[in-house]
Simulated scan of single mutants.
Amino acid sequence: MTTGAPTSSHPTRARRSRLRRFLPLGVAAWLVLEIWLLTLVAGAAGGLTVFLLLLAGFVAGSVVIKRAGRRAFRSLNEALQRGGSPERGGGNGFMMLGGLLLMIPGLISDAVGLLLLIPPVQKALSRSAERTVDRKLREAAPGSLGDAFQQVRIHRPDGKVVQGEVIRNDKDEPGDAAWEQRPPLTS
């Protein structure tokens, strides 16, 4: 039973992007650098000093995240009360990212986290991120969002698209343990 369409035994794979290819390598290099720097500081200042630095970074990061979360919730609440939409680019995202980087153990992540807490840096990064998102949205083909939802559908070999859900139907016998654990259908 063939549909008449030739099929290849070797499907072509899409090329991986540079980010997906080099991100694991970058994360591994960052972790090695963090560990090397921590051992270097521990050798110079002592293990207790490094522990106190890491603890202070964790506490400061949690305070920053809590403060940014409260500020974001307050701005959302005020916007909903006046009937508008919340302001864009309030700096809460970069403040939360800075707090998260402070909480991650390591001196480089702490330095980057502290850098993200400076308001001019937040504004510059926010403008840059907004320009990048706008450019990517302009470059996207029309209807790409609908195409993304189209990919979720089930494609049958005859070309028909069938939407539905998977219902698992286990064939349990009355003597099975799974059968006995199910509640009765009627009371």
Rank of each mutant, 00 (worst) to 15 (best):
A42Q: 07
P11F: 00
W30C: 08
V27C: 13
L25V: 09
L19K: 08
R21I: 01
P24D: 03
A42F: 08
P11I: 00
F22R: 04
A45R: 15
A14M: 04
V41R: 12
L31S: 13
L37C: 04
L37D: 02
L23S: 12
L33Y: 05
A44C: 07
G43W: 07
L40T: 13
R20C: 02
T39L: 15
A28G: 06
G43V: 03
R21K: 04
F22A: 05
R20T: 06
V41N: 03
V41C: 06
I35L: 15
L37G: 01
G26I: 09
L25H: 09
I35W: 15
R21W: 09
A29H: 04
W30M: 09
R16S: 05
F22S: 01
R20Y: 02
R15E: 00
T12L: 14
L31W: 09
S17M: 01
L40M: 11
S17C: 04
V27M: 12
A29W: 08
V27F: 11
F22W: 14
W30K: 01
R18H: 09
V41P: 05
A14N: 07
R13M: 11
I35T: 14
L23R: 03
S17G: 12
V41I: 13
R15G: 05
A45S: 12
A28Q: 06
L23N: 03
L31K: 06
L38A: 13
G43Q: 08
G43M: 05
